[in-house]
C-alpha cells in the first residue's frame, strides 16, 4: 500500500498541497486528474520522495519514506518523470538497462528484451536515445521503469508515472495502458498522472480528482466519473456516456463555438 496521510506542502508560505489523503493499492491503476496548476505534479513528487512534505507522512507498505535508504526505496517504487534528457550519447538499450543498476541480478537480459519488445522499442535498441522521437523516448523511459520492478517479489511494488503516454499516438497509448493490466497481476500498484479522460475512464480503477491543491473527489471510476464532477473539476462542460455497444465509456467535450451556438439558440 502506498499511502499519503494529511500531506501538506507549501512554497514560501503559499500552500501548493492543502491537506491530502490518498491511497494506492497494489494491483490497481490509480489515475490523478485535474486542471493545470492543481498540484498534481507536486503531489507526485511528494509521493516519489523527490520532495518532503511540510506536514503529514508518505509511507510505502506501512514504512514511512524517511525510513528508506535510496536503494531500499528503489526496490519498492519506480518513477517516470515527465521529461528526462540524457546528457551523453547513450543507446536506447543502455537507458533501459539502467533500470537494473540497483539490483543487477534481479533481471535477465532476456527479460529486458521482453519488456522492450512489448513496448515496441526493441528495434531501436542500438539507436542513440537523444535521436528518438518524443513517443519513442517515452516508451524507452517506461521500459527502464518497468525493468526496475520487473522481478516478482513477495511485497507490493509501485510505479509512479507522470503523463507517460502524452507524446504517443492513439494505438500506442492503448498498447501501453493495456500492458499496465499485465503489471497489476505482478502485485504492482500503478499511479499515473493522465490528461486524456477517455483513457482514464476506460483503464483506471481508482481516480483522484485534484483542484487547487485539494482532493475534490476520490473513488472508483464508476462512482466519480460523472458529468457534474468533471464539469466542476475543469470548469468546462464534459459528457460521459456509455458506449452504444455497452462496452466502455465515451468522454467528450464540445468546442466553445458549438456551445455558444447552443446558448444562442436557447436564447
Amino acid at each position: 500500500m502506498l499511502q499519503g496521510k494529511n500531506i501538506h506542502f507549501c512554497i514560501s508560505e503559499r500552500p501548493i498541497i492543502g491537506e491530502v489523503n490518498i491511497m494506492v493499492a497494489p494491483g490497481e491503476l490509480t489515475a490523478i486528474i485535474g486542471p493545470n496548476g492543481a498540484g498534481k505534479s507536486t503531489l507526485f513528487k511528494l509521493l516519489s520522495g523527490d520532495l518532503t512534505c511540510n506536514r503529514g507522512e508518505v509511507s510505502y507498505n506501512g514504512k514511512p519514506l524517511a525510513g528508506f535508504k535510496s536503494n531500499q526505496l528503489a526496490k519498492v517504487r519506480a518513477v517516470m518523470p515527465q521529461h528526462s534528457e540524457v546528457s551523453f550519447p547513450f543507446s536506447s538499450w543502455e537507458i533501459v538497462a539502467l533500470g537494473m543498476i540497483n539490483d543487477p541480478a534481479a533481471i535477465s537480459d532476456r527479460d529486458i528484451q521482453a519488456v522492450m519488445e512489448k513496448l515496441q522499442v526493441w528495434h531501436l535498441r542500438a539507436q542513440a536515445y537523444n535521436m528518438l522521437s518524443g513517443g519513442e523516448k517515452q516508451r524507452v523511459q517506461l521500459a527502464r521503469v518497468l525493468v526496475q520492478v520487473w522481478k516478482k517479489q513477495a511485497f507490493p511494488r509501485f510505479i509512479l508515472l507522470d503523463e507517460p503516454v502524452s507524446s504517443m499516438d492513439v494505438a500506442l497509448q492503448h498498447l501501453v495502458l493495456d500492458f499496465m493490466n499485465e503489471l497489476k497481476q505482478r502485485n504492482i500498484g500503478i499511479l499515473m498522472v493522465l490528461h486524456d479522460l477517455s483513457l482514464v475512464a476506460n483503464y483506471a480503477d481508482q481516480v483522484i480528482m485534484m483542484k487547487h491543491g485539494e482532493v475534490m473527489a476520490n473513488g472508483h471510476v464508476s462512482e466519480v466519473f460523472t458529468n457534474q464532477n468533471l464539469e466542476s473539476l475543469y470548469g468546462y462542460p464534459i459528457h460521459v456516456e456509455k458506449h452504444h455497444e455497452g462496452l466502455g465509456l465515451l468522454v467528450h467535450s464540445l468546442p466553445i463555438h458549438h456551445i455558444n451556438q447552443r446558448i444562442n439558440k436557447a436564447l
Binding site: S48, G49, N71, I101, N102
Partner: peptide, 21 residues
C-alpha cells in the same frame, strides 16, 4: 561508473533508481 551512468539521466532519475546522490 554505474552511478555516473544513472546520473546521465538526471540526478532525480538516478535517485529514483536507487543511487545515493
Amino acid at each position: 561508473y554505474p552511478q555516473l551512468n544513472a546520473m546521465a539521466l538526471g540526478e532525480r532519475e538516478a535517485f529514483h533508481m536507487g543511487v545515493n546522490i
